[in-house]
């Protein structure tokens, strides 16, 4: 994938085989770093929130930590753009540079936003915890709003082929899946995931027919391979010729 996009711009390198190996290795390292970032971010926010982490004897400790992290990043007293950026940085492990590109602002501007949000968590005494049951419905809706906003940012960019912003779509779904894992009994969280997956199916089917490359119409969802090919955009009488 990287080869296709890079070589088109800069030409085929002298040693394509070596290029592929190097890029693949770097990509693998990136992915590993991405996974590690979540743990590191958790520790960072935990320390900055000035609250001792009480070790939980049962195995739910990790689940609780990640939930606490999500609920803290999505605290309603933080500005909405900061909530989204903090969630992307600390839960999804994106760098400020990546977040800045995704939201079309400069990196220093994004840095400032993140620093301010962290300062507010510390100074205003924003609690680092999963909200108590009486606050839960409202706070959970706040978290879902952040995830949905993330999703729509990515979704609106998906048609334009803007790869950085499309990754927001993927992150939104990944984080919502995580939330479903963490709160398996919550119907609202599952409903949001279902909505995202449905939209993504629309989005994918909106691109082009795999066989004839004709743009698909919105609303045609891929149910099985090749089924679009018989869709209304492509009357059988025309055949598959040059379209």
């Amino acid at each position: 994938m990287r080869a296709l996009s890079d070589w088109r711009k800069s030409g085929i390198p002298d040693n394509p085989g070596a290029w592929l190996t190097t890029v693949a290795k770097r990509r693998a390292i990136d992915l590993l770093r991405h996974a590690g970032a979540e743990d590191r971010a958790l520790r960072r926010v935990a320390v900055e929130a000035d609250e001792p982490l009480e070790p939980d004897p049962d195995s739910n400790a990790d689940i609780d930590d990640r939930l606490r992290l999500i609920f803290t990043c999505c605290y309603p007293a933080l500005p909405i753009d900061a909530r989204v950026a903090l969630t992307l940085q600390t839960v999804a492990g994106l760098t400020p540079a990546q977040i800045a590109r995704a939201f079309l602002v400069t990196e220093p501007a994004m840095d400032k936003r993140l620093v301010r949000a962290r300062a507010k968590i510390r100074h205003a005494g924003i609690p680092y915890r999963v909200p108590p049951p009486d606050l839960m419905p409202e706070r959970r809706d706040g978290v879902l709003a952040v995830l949905y906003l993330l999703f729509t940012e990515g979704y609106s960019a998906a048609g334009g082929g803007d790869l950085i912003r499309v990754s927001l779509l993927r992150e939104a779904i990944r984080l919502t899946r995580l939330l479903v894992e963490l709160m398996p009994d919550d119907g609202e969280v599952r409903a949001l995931l279902a909505l995202m997956l449905l939209h993504r199916a629309y989005c994918r089917s909106h691109r082009r027919c795999r066989r004839c490359r004709h743009p698909r119409r919105a609303g045609q969802i891929a149910v099985g391979p090749g089924c679009h090919h018989r869709g209304p955009h492509h009357p059988p009488i025309v055949g598959t010729a040059s379209r």
């Binding site: 205003a124 005494g125 609690p127």
Partner: peptide, 8 residues
Amino acid sequence: CGDLDAAI
């Protein structure tokens, strides 16, 4: 009070 939740 303890934290912002309590203040709110």
